[in-house]
Simulated scan of single mutants.
Amino acid sequence: MTVEVVRDDDPRCAELEAAGYQLVGESWAARLRDPDPSILEQVVLRAAGVTVRELDRSSAVAWHELETANEKDYPYTPATHRVVQPVDELAELWTTGRVFGAFDGERLVGATYISLQDDPPRGETGFTSVLDGYRGRGIGQAVKAASILALAADGVRVFGTGGAALNEASLGANLALGYVIEERWRSYAAPPW
């Protein structure tokens, strides 16, 4: 299946629709500039019943188990599809970024991955996930807030994130952290003929 991913303000959207292309997904990209540490600290503290902290490679297996359990719940769009890497590849992400997690006792129940991008300089969230049964408690928002606080302490002032439009919980959590949507994208599938 041929898919075209186009910004929603691009005139090609109308052209593709007129040519019979079908909308098969929508996604968004957002930025957070000069985050307010006091807001982020409160978000971390509100995640009741869990401990939020930065993870090291010794958590790779637990992180892989969390991601594997959540893989079926990641919303699918052609622009945002997530496939969980094998544990050794997931562990390699520590060479390009940092991982923050939330623990209920010894159990990892939420995590986020953030990397530092150069052009333009920013902290970019790769993905965030929370174990089913722990969702809706601010845990995803808390691990993301912890990651932003850590990079901001190192001088980072701009942060990026994105996701599938149908994941309203993720969108709402990011907007509450101060992210502003700067781009919306549409994924179109070519007509079957």
Results as ranks from 00 to 15, higher is better:
63 W>A: 07
89 E>G: 01
100 F>S: 05
153 A>Y: 00
115 S>L: 03
48 A>T: 12
73 D>P: 02
117 Q>V: 07
152 A>T: 01
129 S>Q: 13
120 P>F: 01
117 Q>S: 03
124 E>D: 11
158 V>K: 13
104 D>F: 15
85 Q>P: 09
80 T>C: 08
73 D>L: 03
102 A>W: 13
73 D>Y: 01
51 T>L: 14
108 L>P: 15
171 L>K: 15
99 V>Y: 12
56 D>A: 00
150 A>E: 13
74 Y>S: 06
171 L>I: 07
92 E>C: 11
71 E>F: 01
52 V>A: 03
40 L>R: 02
121 P>K: 00
50 V>S: 12
155 G>P: 11
161 T>D: 06
78 P>I: 07
123 G>Q: 12
91 A>L: 07
89 E>M: 03
48 A>F: 14
42 Q>E: 15
150 A>N: 13
45 L>I: 12
39 I>C: 05
126 G>D: 08
51 T>H: 15
139 I>S: 07
116 L>A: 11
115 S>K: 14
42 Q>I: 05
132 D>A: 11
101 G>R: 07
55 L>H: 01
62 A>L: 02
75 P>Q: 02
143 V>M: 10
105 G>Q: 10
133 G>Y: 12
103 F>K: 14
53 R>M: 04
169 A>D: 07
66 L>P: 11
118 D>W: 13
127 F>N: 15
142 A>E: 11
98 R>N: 04
80 T>H: 13
143 V>F: 00
136 G>R: 04
72 K>H: 04
137 R>D: 01
164 A>C: 09
119 D>K: 13
115 S>Q: 14
100 F>C: 03
59 S>M: 06
140 G>D: 12
43 V>L: 08
39 I>S: 12
52 V>F: 01
143 V>S: 09
133 G>F: 14
133 G>R: 14
95 T>L: 12
166 L>Y: 00
99 V>P: 03
170 S>A: 04
98 R>Y: 08
164 A>G: 05
122 R>T: 03
97 G>W: 00
55 L>T: 00
51 T>K: 11
141 Q>A: 08
143 V>G: 10
71 E>P: 06
86 P>L: 03
103 F>R: 12
166 L>H: 06
69 A>L: 05
154 D>Y: 03
64 H>F: 13
56 D>S: 02
72 K>C: 03
113 Y>N: 13
59 S>Q: 04
105 G>I: 04
142 A>N: 09
154 D>G: 12
107 R>A: 02
40 L>M: 02
85 Q>C: 00
143 V>L: 05
141 Q>R: 15
59 S>I: 08
160 G>R: 10
